[in-house]
Simulated assay, not measured.
Amino acid sequence: MTIRRLILLALASLLPAAAFAAKVKPPAAVLREATTSLAAVEFAEAGSEGRMVFRRLEKLGGDAEMPELIDLAIPAELRRVVLPSERYLIAYTVFRREAEQIRVARLGAQLLVTPGLEPALLRDTPENRALIAWQPGGDEKAVQARLPELIALLDARDPQQHNFALSEIVLRPQLAEALDGRARKALLRFASRADANANARGRLLQAATVQPEHFGKDGWKAVALDILATTPVRVQDVDGNATLVRFAFELVERDRATVAPEVLERWLTGDNAALAEMALLRLRAQEPAREMPALERALTLSLLPAGTREFLLDHRRRAALAAQ
């Protein structure tokens, strides 16, 4: 199939969703896109900075031609993960989207990083092969019948499987609408697990915040408060933690939940200025007199991250101007 034909197919696949341009696709839909290539591979060599070269062992999907050596742009953390002795399943693309058009990427192929596949690299196992081959049913009832198997995947050992399953549930309206009491309890348990995939937990909290009619309202406040109290404040150390904490803050804001002042104050010492701002605003809403003393205490720390210090200093200046 020619590159022109691939581009036309990919563009055609976007047309029905034109009115929902901001909608995020579930991972199984991304894997079936005309622009996605799937392969079983093994590591070949490191490649140039920011890239890895994999040797194709088996083509599993996609219409684009697939070379024997696949040179990919990859997330930096994969350099600490990938081993020559392991077989992997990958999803990648040689295209990029630009101004609602699909073009061949000038900088070469890149490993997909998309909700539910962050990144799109899994060990080559029968379970993971079944995962990347997973497709929903052809109609609403058939799709909803797949919900129990996705819920069961939340107990899998591999966080990559958690993320795929949870993203399918959250990003497919038919599945979110089918949630019953048992499924909601399973989702609450998953959201409470510190060892679960942080991207998946954050995505679930976001859904619970904006869709209480599907995910229920009971129990989420306790989950959010626990996340704020226990998640390490250096969120850049774990992919997804910043998003997880952000939606925990949004959930307590929605429910006007009271957060212990010492919990809010700990977020003024972290490495994410946006979360420090959310903590300050929540502190102001609860106990206005504690806002500025908490800020001053954070500024006394010698190793306060630079971005957070800059934000707090600016916040202090703005507060002083507003008080004049």
Rank of each mutant, 00 (worst) to 15 (best):
G181V: 11
G181A: 14
G181P: 04
G181F: 11
G181C: 11
R182H: 10
R182T: 06
R182P: 08
A183R: 09
A183L: 03
A183K: 03
A183V: 03
A183C: 08
A183D: 14
R184E: 13
R184H: 11
R184N: 14
A186V: 03
A186L: 04
A186S: 14
A186M: 12
L187C: 03
L188R: 15
L188Y: 04
R189G: 15
R189F: 01
R189Q: 13
F190G: 07
F190I: 14
F190L: 05
F190P: 06
S192W: 05
S192P: 08
R193S: 00
R193F: 01
A194G: 12
A194F: 01
A194K: 10
D195R: 08
D195E: 15
D195M: 01
D195P: 13
D195K: 02
D195C: 02
D195A: 10
A196W: 12
A196R: 09
A196V: 01
A196Q: 02
N197T: 12
N197W: 00
N197K: 03
A198H: 14
A198W: 09
A198N: 00
A198D: 13
A198P: 11
N199M: 12
N199W: 14
A200W: 11
A200Q: 09
R201N: 04
G202Q: 07
G202H: 15
G202D: 01
R203Y: 06
R203W: 02
L204H: 15
L204S: 06
L204K: 05
L205E: 02
L205P: 03
L205S: 01
L205N: 11
L205Q: 05
Q206I: 02
Q206L: 09
Q206R: 14
A207K: 14
A207G: 03
A207H: 06
A207C: 06
A208P: 13
A208G: 06
T209R: 07
T209F: 06
T209A: 07
T209N: 09
T209Q: 12
V210L: 07
V210E: 03
V210P: 01
V210M: 06
V210S: 09
Q211Y: 15
Q211V: 10
Q211G: 08
